[in-house]
Simulated assay, not measured.
Amino acid sequence: MSSLRMPQAYLKRLGADAGEAALRYEIVEEQAAALGRMGRKAEAALAALKAHEGAGRAEALKAAADAVWCLLVQRDVMGLRDRARIVADYDIPREVMARLGAR
Rank of each mutant, 00 (worst) to 15 (best):
40 R>C: 01
9 A>V: 10
49 L>P: 00
13 R>Q: 15
34 A>V: 06
36 G>R: 05
18 A>Y: 05
15 G>P: 12
17 D>Y: 02
47 A>W: 10
5 R>H: 15
48 A>Q: 13
8 Q>L: 11
14 L>C: 10
25 Y>R: 02
17 D>E: 15
22 A>P: 00
6 M>N: 13
38 M>N: 07
40 R>H: 09
34 A>K: 05
38 M>P: 00
19 G>K: 04
15 G>K: 06
21 A>L: 02
21 A>F: 00
12 K>A: 13
30 E>C: 03
31 Q>P: 01
40 R>M: 05
39 G>C: 08
43 E>A: 07
29 E>T: 10
32 A>P: 00
5 R>M: 09
26 E>Q: 15
16 A>M: 15
22 A>L: 08
47 A>G: 06
35 L>T: 05
6 M>W: 05
10 Y>F: 11
41 K>E: 11
25 Y>V: 00
10 Y>A: 10
31 Q>M: 13
2 S>I: 03
42 A>Q: 03
6 M>E: 11
17 D>F: 01
43 E>N: 02
13 R>W: 11
3 S>P: 03
41 K>T: 08
47 A>P: 11
27 I>R: 15
8 Q>W: 08
7 P>C: 01
26 E>H: 13
39 G>E: 15
6 M>I: 12
47 A>E: 15
9 A>W: 14
5 R>W: 09
16 A>T: 04
5 R>E: 15
39 G>V: 04
26 E>P: 00
16 A>G: 03
